[in-house]
Design a protein around this nucleic acid. Structure first.
Lengths: 204, 204
DNA sequence: TATCATAGTCACCAGTTGGTGACAAGTCAG
DNA sequence: CTGACTTGTCACCAACTGGTGACTATGATA
């Protein structure tokens, strides 16, 4: 038709993104991608050798995570804030950002039940970003030695991820309604109170 | 062969459990179940009308969750303990129990990416059990009005679930190694410190 | 204009899936 | 023993999956 290799490749990659975002990785097969892209599937095999390699290039092209800089944002200039302020700020930002990224959510779902090389590679990228954020935090205001800040962060981040992933399927969890903003406000408030209470009493 | 309807039905249900526990619900098809049970698949259609109905009866037969009583256990007799003690106790028990229940883990994975009637029904059972635990907690030691204990619990439970679900796939998260018990000890300690710090200062 | 590599099309393959109809083999009542 | 019913077996179906070989259409170059 268009006889343009690059555009065809782009259409294929775009189809991957669209399918991934709207129907998850379960429907993500060669045939479905070809159908969505309006492209013969043999071209997928020609341009991207495999479905794994196709997904690999798709994974490399996109930015599915906030970088530390984006996460920190303008406030990076502010100095000498308290640790708990920084933590709750970053966590809430992470929450709000993740809610917007449907593809990232699907990748996280995918990670949760398949141990591909692809998902593991994506997981490595994510983990590096997360530990980088921790490093940033630590050099911003040093972690109190009596608190295991990484473990605490792990629990909270895990909770955020799980709650965000759940809302696509079910609007309630533990009697909290996540279809309305007020449910999320309660979660954000809970994160704030958890972080402030746990991390704050450094000086006591 | 054996010409015993009830045993055949039991074998089919057992095959569902085994497949679900070891390879998840993605491999859970009629053919796979029949293969695993060593039974012709037409019998599945005869005894359980459908695959959904088969899974439904399977779901009804099993106890995939601790009841409140089991969760509370012997300590139910102890009175007038502090709320934060109770919460951390229940949360850590929930964590340890969930780690043992591979089928429950698969159900949770399933819930996370399919909104069947079946998964929603199972989710309702789970949610009721969780809210019952909250009620129990509340009447044991009334929630402080300035803290949103349900929301705090939701974040922590969600974190626990996510971390447990993750470990089957990837042994690390945020630089924490979950293949060794020490990683889980850090998590348990983090939960403890989070709960104690956040809930404790009721009297202050 | 003839050549030739490239882009795209089409038909096919084997394997698997959920699902069904026809039939053999036991079992039990009359 | 005969008939009826249940349990289990086998063969088949359409639809779909990932994957491939052979083909045509196109455009640039010589």
């Amino acid at each position: 038709m268009v006889r343009d290799k690059e555009e065809t490749k782009a259409r294929i990659l775009a189809a991957v993104g669209k399918l991934l975002a709207e129907s998850g990785f379960q429907q993500l097969g060669i045939n479905a991608i070809a159908r969505e892209a309006g492209v013969d599937k043999v071209l997928i095999y020609r341009y991207f050798e495999n479905l794994p390699t196709l997904l690999q290039t798709f994974g490399k092209e996109g930015n599915y995570w906030l970088t530390v800089e984006e996460l920190v944002g303008d406030e990076a200039t502010i100095e000498a804030e308290a640790l708990e302020k920084w933590m709750s700020l970053l966590l809430v930002r992470f929450l709000r950002d993740l809610q917007q990224r449907s593809i990232t959510q699907e990748i996280l779902r995918w990670e949760l039940l398949e141990g591909n090389e692809l998902t593991q590679e994506l997981a490595q990228v994510r983990d590096r970003m997360a530990t980088d954020s921790l490093k940033f935090l630590n050099q911003k205001c040093a972690f109190p030695p009596d608190k295991d800040i990484p473990a605490i962060s792990a629990v909270l981040i895990a909770g955020i991820v799980y709650l965000v992933l759940r809302t696509k399927i079910s609007p309630t969890f533990l009697g909290i309604d996540f279809s309305s903003p007020s449910g999320w406000q309660r979660i954000e408030a809970a994160i704030l109170s958890l972080v402030e209470a746990t991390v704050q009493n450094d000086e006591l």
